[in-house]
């Protein structure tokens, strides 16, 4: 890494503040998923306890750690450690695809890519700089989302049950294995689309496919078919890492002057 690549990374990362629509997307989705969703969920169960009964029945299926707590405490634990981890994955997927669509397709669309290609960096370096920029934004958004989610949950937990409810080991794998690798996968998919896509929207549609496995995980969990254990997450994470490595190599090959400037 050199200062020239750092300049590209910095410029790409700063560009999100210039693009209103992109900035709103990056802001709204995490707020809904990590603040609004847990808030509404926990409060509605607190104020309408009958609804919680059914949920408690569902909770029987999950190995809730032995706690000297109320059913509310179990529900908060369920929220934090079963429900939110899967929902959370939407955030890095969304952030990295929005960012990389602007960074790769947007530059092509606005005809600034050609200018950038004339700089004295190799294509590999430009490619890396752009992937790093999208990756960093995705990690930044995920980290901020996780922190704000934790603050909301802990505050509610303390206010309602009088004690904190801690995140379990799943979150470690989500944050440090699955979120990074799934971001890289989303970025490489967008890059491959960027050869064909003529507009940012075109490319972002491609990333929607990545949400399908996340939705399947969610459904599986709710219907009781699938229980997302820490081990399952580790396996998923390793598979994602392998896929990300392969895809990165493959999309690097797509990154050629002639294919990039063709329109």
């Amino acid at each position: 890494m050199n200062t020239q690549m750092a300049a590209i990374i910095k410029k790409d990362m700063q560009s999100i503040t210039c693009n209103k629509r992109m900035f709103t997307t990056l802001l709204v989705v995490p707020i809904v998923l990590t603040i609004f969703l847990p808030f509404v969920f926990i409060l509605s169960i607190y104020f309408v306890p009958e609804e919680g009964k059914e949920l408690l029945a569902l909770l029987e299926m999950f190995p809730i750690p032995v706690q000297s707590g109320s059913s509310l405490k179990s529900i908060i634990w369920f929220m934090l450690n079963i429900l939110l981890p899967v929902f959370f994955l939407i955030i890095p997927i969304m952030a990295s695809s929005v960012m990389s669509a602007a960074s790769f397709v947007g530059e092509k669309e606005k005809r600034t890519l050609e200018t950038l290609l004339y700089c004295p960096l190799s294509l590999k370096q430009i490619f890396r700089a752009k992937v790093i920029a999208s990756f960093l934004i995705s990690m930044l958004v995920s980290a901020i989302s996780f922190t704000s989610m934790l603050i909301v949950i802990e505050t509610l937990s303390y206010a309602i049950t009088g004690s904190f409810t801690f995140p379990d080991a799943k979150w470690f794998f989500i944050l440090f294995l699955i979120a990074p690798t799934i971001s890289l996968i989303a970025i490489t998919l967008i890059v491959q689309m960027s050869a064909r896509a003529q507009s940012i929207e075109d490319a972002q549609q491609g990333a929607v496919f990545l949400l399908i496995p996340v939705l399947l995980l969610l459904i599986g969990q709710f219907t009781g078919i699938l229980f997302i254990s820490t081990w399952l997450l580790l396996v998923i994470g390793i598979l994602c890492a392998l896929a990300a490595g392969l895809l990165l190599k493959k999309s690097m090959n797509h990154f050629q002057y002639e294919t990039l400037l063709k329109n």
Partner: peptide, 30 residues
């Protein structure tokens, strides 16, 4: 590229940056 400067009709710069910000950015990647 390190030795040459290129002006083509399609090579645009960033609309969201000012004139001097653009030049500073391109200076830094050179």
């Amino acid at each position: 590229h390190a030795l040459c400067g290129v002006v083509t009709e399609h090579a645009q710069m960033y609309d969201a940056l000012t004139g001097i910000q653009n030049l500073i950015f391109y200076g830094s990647i050179y």
